[in-house]
């Protein structure tokens, strides 16, 4: 038997798709949230590796100190005393280093707390969870906008962000662009996708055209 998946007209009715969705709503919600937000894995792994290196070095220094061998860089006791006597070091260097460390820490705190949205949207679907990269939405909108505005596809550029789709058209010199037609086409497309969160179009048409496009 072939495993080719072609929907058959006379096939028995498929298991209810709405049943699938309601049964899996929890799973689908979890997947949707996880696919549209960053896991922060890279940053966490980098930090973990850095911590491992620091701890391994500290451990080595402790072992060397216990054996009475000369330290690799600094003996543990010297580390402690120089940290306590930090202010004997030049003030400028201590202050600058402290500020740099605090700023790095602040960036990490922000990265840990911020939602970390990915450039993706959820697309309305009955049977599955669909996540779409913003650039795919943008290239589809660009194609429709260039058709509706009667400009060359190379002169249509679209960028999609969390809430807005910015459509930029550069008309061919001598051929005016019908802004309303472009707007309605783009809006119609966006409505048909049913994106979450919803995206509003903003159409901009360059005031000066381009020759020969």
């Amino acid at each position: 038997m072939s495993t080719t998946l072609t929907p058959q007209a006379d096939a028995p009715p498929a298991p209810s798709p709405t049943g699938t969705v309601s049964a899996n709503r929890g799973i689908y919600r979890r997947i949707g949230r996880r696919e549209t937000h960053s896991p922060r894995s890279l940053l966490a792994i980098v930090l973990a590796v850095a911590l491992i290196l620091v701890l391994a070095w500290l451990g080595t220094e402790i072992v060397l100190a216990l054996l009475g061998a000369p330290a690799l860089l600094v003996a543990p006791v010297d580390m402690f005393t120089s940290a306590v006597n930090l202010l004997d070091a030049p003030t400028g260097i201590v202050a600058a280093a402290g500020i740099v460390v605090a700023v790095i820490g602040l960036v990490l705190v922000i990265a840990g707390v911020a939602p970390g949205r990915r450039a993706r949207h959820l697309l309305m679907s009955e049977r599955t969870v669909v996540v779409v990269d913003n650039e795919v939405i943008a290239s589809a909108l660009a194609r429709h906008a260039s058709l509706a505005g009667n400009v060359d596809p190379d002169n249509a550029s679209v960028s999609v962000s969390h809430r807005t789709a910015e459509v930029h058209l550069t008309p061919t010199t001598g051929i005016p662009v019908d802004r309303d037609a472009v707007t309605s086409t783009v809006t119609e497309q966006l409505d048909s996708y049913g994106l979450t969160p919803s995206v509003r179009p903003r159409v901009r048409i360059a005031t000066s055209g381009r020759i020969g496009a």
Binding site: L86, V94, G98, V100, V101, G105, L106, L108
Partner: peptide
């Protein structure tokens, strides 16, 4: 890690 760095860095900078 971020909070630790903020505390250590801020302590050193304010003390200096």
């Amino acid at each position: 890690v971020g909070l630790l760095l903020v505390v250590v860095g801020a302590a050193a900078a304010t003390a200096a």
